[in-house]
Design a protein around this nucleic acid. Sequence first.
DNA 1: CTGTCGGCACAGAGCCGACAA
DNA 2: TTGTCGGCTCTGTGCCGACAG
Lengths: 514, 514
Amino acid sequence: MAADEVDPAVWKACAGTAPRVPAVGSRVYYFPHGHAEQAASPPDVLEAIPSMILCCVTAVHLLADHDTDEVFARIQLDPCFHLLFSQAPKEGLPSSQEEDGVFLSFSKILTASDANNGGGFSVPRFCAETLLPPLDYEKRPPSQTIYVRDLHGNSWSFRHIYRGTPRRHLLTTGWSTFVNEKRLVTGDSVVFMKKLSGQLLVGIRRTSQSRGTTEYSPYNPKATSWKIEKHTAEKVLPKNARGEVLASSVAEIGRLAGRGMPFEVLYYPKSGYPNFVVAAEAVDTAIKLHWTIGSRVKMSVESEDSARMTWFQGTISKVTQGSPWRMLQVTWDEPEVFKNARNVSPWQVELVCVSSQIDTPFHPMKKLKGTESSEFFHHQLIGMPSFQMTGLDGRNQRLFNYHLSPPSIQGARQDAVNALNICDCINQPNKLLVNGLASLKKDLFTDLGTNISTHSVSCPPSENSTQTSDEKISEPENSTVKSSTQSFLLFGKVIHLGQPNNGDTVDEHQLWAI
Amino acid sequence: MAADEVDPAVWKACAGTAPRVPAVGSRVYYFPHGHAEQAASPPDVLEAIPSMILCCVTAVHLLADHDTDEVFARIQLDPCFHLLFSQAPKEGLPSSQEEDGVFLSFSKILTASDANNGGGFSVPRFCAETLLPPLDYEKRPPSQTIYVRDLHGNSWSFRHIYRGTPRRHLLTTGWSTFVNEKRLVTGDSVVFMKKLSGQLLVGIRRTSQSRGTTEYSPYNPKATSWKIEKHTAEKVLPKNARGEVLASSVAEIGRLAGRGMPFEVLYYPKSGYPNFVVAAEAVDTAIKLHWTIGSRVKMSVESEDSARMTWFQGTISKVTQGSPWRMLQVTWDEPEVFKNARNVSPWQVELVCVSSQIDTPFHPMKKLKGTESSEFFHHQLIGMPSFQMTGLDGRNQRLFNYHLSPPSIQGARQDAVNALNICDCINQPNKLLVNGLASLKKDLFTDLGTNISTHSVSCPPSENSTQTSDEKISEPENSTVKSSTQSFLLFGKVIHLGQPNNGDTVDEHQLWAI
DNA sequence: CTGTCGGCACAGAGCCGACAA
DNA sequence: TTGTCGGCTCTGTGCCGACAG
C-alpha cells in the first residue's frame, strides 16, 4: 500500500477535527484491542496480549493513500518500559510553518447532483470567492479553467463557470472525470485548499459507508461491484499494522512489544473508531478518576462532515475491571447517535457529574483538570493555532469560536467549558446540556466574546462552515457577535434554540482556517 | 489485502503452467534475495541475512486478490533447522477431487477488439462448443445469456450470440462491463472454466506490463490514472511478506527466521520471476551437480499466455560462489527471450552437456536424473494428473502430450526428454533443439506415441490450446497422431517445421484439461 | 444561495456484417 | 476460423436555464 507523505496542515484539513495523532517523542499507550476493533476478523488471539502497552512514539508519518486519497498516519512505536517518566517529548511533527503552507480550506459534502447528475459541482459562493482565482465577470459567461492538485501532486483541471439564473458558481468540464477516477459518491467530501502561493489542492474524505465495514456479499453482481471489492480489499485490512490479516498482525505486535522491540501501526482517522494510540498522560489521568455507575459523562463526537464536534451526554451503567479500553458502559441520552459506542474508554469522555449520593459540587472540578490532556495531541500535531467558526443565518450574523488555542489561552477556554458543564449539571441535572443552554446563553456569550474577540477570522456567508488560515487576521470587520439569532454555535456545534437537536439541522460544507 | 481462497484446480488454471507451489509439510529453501527481487526497492539491507533458509511449509493458501482477481499463494514457513532429513511431507493441499471440480478450462489473450472496440469478445469456436451451454441454432440469430462466476463468486452475465458472415461466436452484452470493472487491457488473459456441475467460472491473468514495476510518475494525470496508482499500491508491495515496505519485511523475516520463528510470504506467480520458495530436494540435488563454465544448459520458459512451456538453450559463462541464488550466468542462444534471466539458479535449468574437454557422452545422463525433482511441486500442488495437448491444423490432426503424469509414467517421459536432449547435443551441438528436431521427427513421434497413446483427451480444432480435465478420458476416438501436419507439439511447444521458431508463431489461447 | 429537474446536444459505447488474414 | 474495420443506432454523459427550497 503505497502512499505519499503530505503536509501536516493538508493532512489535518482532510482528516477533519476529531483525529489526534501523537507527537514524536511523546509517551503513549497502544491498545491492541482497539487496533483489532478496526478489522473484520474478530480478535480471538488477543487474550494473551497485554491490554495496553506503554510506548514512545519514535516516528510519525502523515500519509495519503495512493488509491483512495484517504489520509492516514503511520506511527512507529517503541515499547519503553524503562523510561517511565523521563524524556520530555521533543517537538514532534514537522509543522507547516513554511512559507507555502495551506492557509484556507473548504470542505463540502457531495450532493447527489455533485456526484451523479450532469457531471457538475455546485461551488458554494463563499468558497468560490475565497479560494478560487477571481473570475473575469466581464466575460459572457464568466468562466476560467482552474488547476488543482490532489494529495499525490496530480493535477486536475476544472472549468469554473458562473452562470444560471440566479447566477451561481459551477465546476463543469473535468469534474465528472475527477468524480469517476476518485470514485466519489454522494456523501463523500471534497476538501479544497489554497496554499499561500495560490496553488489549489483537493483532498477527499470518504463517507463512512464507503469505507470498509460493508460486508462482502457474494453472488450479487451489483453489490460486489468494484467499489465494495475495493473497500473490503484495501480499507479494512490495510488499516492494520502490516496490511495483512489483522489478528496475526496484532498478535505479532504483541510478541514484538513483549520483547521490547519497536513496531509500527497504521491509524486511519475513521469517524466512529477511537484511536488506539493514546497519550499516556491522558490515559493515566483519566483512569485515576472515580468512574462509578450512575455518573454523568459527556463525549464529543464529530459531525458527519468531520468539521465540528458535538457533545452528547449519558450515564455510566457499568464499569468493567481489567483493561481500561472501553471499560465504561454508558447509557446515552440519545442512544441513536452512538450506535457502536455503548462502551467507551475513560479518556474519551469527560465527567459531568459524579454519582456520589453526597453531592459535593466542586469535587468534579478538580478532577476535570486532567481532561485537558485530551487536547494534548491536537496542538502538537499541527503546531499552530486553529480556528473553527460558523456563520449563522444572514451575511452578518456570525459567531466565532476559538477552537484550538495556544496552551495559555486554551487553558482558559477549557476551564470555561468545565465550569459550564458543572453549572449545567448542578442547575438542571436531568436536562441535556444542549437543551439546558438557553438559560445560560448570555453568560456564555460574554465568556466567549472575551476570549475570542482578538482572534477573528473570515467566515462564511451563510450555513455553517469552517475555515482554517495561516494568517491570523482576515476580514475582521465582520467579527461581531449577535445574540439575536435563531441558532448559535457552541464549541463547533450549531444549536438551534427551541427545537430538539438532530443531525438534519447541521450544514454540510465547511470553510476552515487553521 | 483481502482475498478469497480458491479451488486448487481453479488456481492452477488461472496461474498457468509454470508456477509451482510447495506442498504443506515439504521441506523448502526460502531465498530472501529472490523475495526481494520482486519489489521496486533495492535490497540494501539483505547483506546480513542468510542467502537461503531451510524451512518446513506449515500452510499454503491459494488465494485470489479481491481487486485484481490475480491468483497468488500465501505460504507459511517454519525454519526447521532441527528436522533436517526427518518428517516425510504429509499430503499437502486440498485437492479438487470433489465431485464438482474444474474439468475444462480455456484461456485466451484478449485482442484489441476484445478489450477495446465495440465491447465484444470473440469466442474461439472450440471454446464455445466445449465450454458454453449448447446454443439453439434454430433461433435467428442463435443466442443465449450465459452466467459466469468470477473467483470471488460474483456472477456475471454475457449475451452469447452466433452471428456474422462467416458465423462466429461472440459475447456481446455484458462483456464490456466485465472488461471495465476488471480493468482488463489488451494482452490480459481471461480463463474460462467449467465445473462438472456445468457452472462456468472466469479467471484473469494479467499481462506482465499491467502488473506493477511501472513507475509512478507524478504531475501527469494520464499516467497517474487508477491503473498505475493501483498497481504501485497493491501489486508491487503486497507481494511481500506483510504488504509493507519490502526491504524491511525481508529483513524482518530474516530476523524472525534467525530466531527460528515462523513467518509467511506471498508468492505471486508472475511470469519471469522465479519462485523464491523452492523444494529443498530440488535445490540440494541441483547444487550438487558440476556447474562449470562452458556447460550447455536448457531452461523452460512459459509462453506469453502461460499455457505452454518452451525450452531454450544457452552456455554457462560464469559461476558465482556464495549464494546459489542466480549463481549461474548464462549466455542464451536467443538472448532476446531472457531479458532478465542472464543469471539463473541451478534448479531452474537442466544440464544438457557438460563442458568437459574429454567428451564422455553418457556422463550427463546420470546427472540429469536429479532434475526430475523439478516436477516435485507440480504433482503435489494439484494432486491429480494433468494433460496438456494441442490440436494442429484440421479437426482430426492432433498430437497429445502427457504433460504431467503420475510419478511412474512421468519418470519414463522425463527419461525420454533427457535422452532426446543428449542426442541433440551430441549430434548437432551448435543447433537449437527446436531447429534440430526436424531430423528427429520420426523417432520422436514413435517415442511419444508409445508413451502417450493411452492417455488421450479432447483437443482443440486448430491453433494450439490446452485443456484440463478431471475425467481421464474424453473423446478418445479422435486420438490419432498424424505426421502429415505442418506443425506439432513438443512438450507443450508448437513447432512449425521448416521455419525458424519465434514467438509470433505461437497461438494465443489455450484449452486445458487437468 | 444552491439543489434538483427536464431539455437538449453530442460523443462514444455497443452491435452489426463485410472482409481479409 | 477469427481479428479488425467502418457504419449505424442509441444510450447516457454533460451542459444548460428554470425553478423552488
